[in-house]
Amino acid sequence: MPEKPNPFEELDELIERMNDQFGELSQTFEGGSVLSEISVDVADTGEEIVVTADLPGFAEDDIDLRADQESITLSADAETEAVEEDANYHRKERSHQSVSRRVRLPEAVDAAAATASYTNGVLTVTLPKLDPDAPGGHEIDVE
C-alpha cells in the first residue's frame, strides 16, 4: 500500500523554495547592495543597558545615533567611491547604503550620560539606567 504524503514535508519544501526565490530577488534591489536591517544585541548588565550593533562598511561620520529614555535610534548612510567612466564593469554591486533601526529599551536610561564607540564595524552604546520619571532625550556622539 502506498505511503500517504506528509503535508508538513510538502509545506517545508514550499517554504524553502520561497525563501530561496526571495533571497535571489532581494539581491537585485539597489544593485545587490541590500542591507535591510541593523542586527543588534541588547544586554542588561545590572547598572546599564548595552546595545551592540553591526554596521559593517560604514565610517563613524556615517552614523547618526539618538536616544531617549525608552529607545535608541541607529541610522547610517554611506556612498561608495565614484565610478570610473572608462572602466568596463562586469559586475557593479557596491553603491549607496542606508540603514535605520529604532530599538525599544527594556528600562528607562539616562540618554545624556550615554557613551558610544565604533570599532571594526561594530557599534557599542552604553546607556546607564535611570529613574523612569526623569525627562528628556539626547544625541550621542560616536567616538
Rank of each mutant, 00 (worst) to 15 (best):
M1A: 05
P2K: 06
E3L: 15
E3W: 07
K4Q: 13
K4L: 14
P5Q: 07
N6Q: 09
P7S: 05
F8S: 14
E9M: 15
E9R: 09
L11P: 07
E13H: 07
E13R: 09
E13Y: 08
I15C: 07
I15T: 13
R17N: 06
R17M: 02
M18G: 11
D20R: 13
Q21E: 10
Q21N: 07
Q21C: 06
F22E: 03
G23V: 03
E24S: 11
L25C: 05
T28K: 03
T28M: 01
T28P: 02
E30R: 09
G31M: 08
S33D: 11
V34R: 00
V34P: 03
L35N: 05
L35T: 08
E37A: 11
I38Y: 01
S39E: 14
S39M: 12
S39V: 14
D41E: 14
V42P: 03
D44E: 11
G46Q: 08
G46V: 09
E47K: 02
E47C: 05
E47T: 14
E47D: 11
E48Y: 05
T52W: 04
A53G: 10
P56G: 00
P56K: 04
G57K: 03
F58V: 08
A59K: 10
D61G: 13
I63T: 07
D64S: 14
D64M: 12
D64P: 00
D64T: 13
L65D: 02
L65S: 02
R66H: 03
R66Q: 07
A67V: 05
Q69V: 12
T73Y: 01
T73Q: 04
L74N: 07
D77R: 01
A78G: 08
T80H: 03
A82K: 05
V83H: 00
E84L: 02
N88I: 13
N88R: 04
Y89L: 07
Y89D: 03
H90D: 15
R91D: 12
R91F: 11
K92T: 14
E93H: 04
R94K: 09
Q97R: 05
S98V: 15
V99D: 01
V99K: 00
R101A: 11
R102T: 15
V103W: 04
V103I: 14
R104Q: 15
L105A: 00
A108T: 12
V109K: 00
V109P: 00
A112M: 02
A112G: 09
A113W: 05
A113C: 05
T115C: 02
T115K: 10
A116F: 01
S117R: 11
G121M: 04
V122L: 03
V122E: 01
L123C: 01
T124F: 06
T124S: 01
V125F: 10
V125M: 02
L127K: 01
L127I: 06
L127F: 06
P128T: 10
L130G: 15
L130H: 12
D131K: 08
D131I: 02
P132K: 10
D133Q: 10
P135R: 11
G137D: 09
G137Q: 01
H138K: 09
V142T: 05
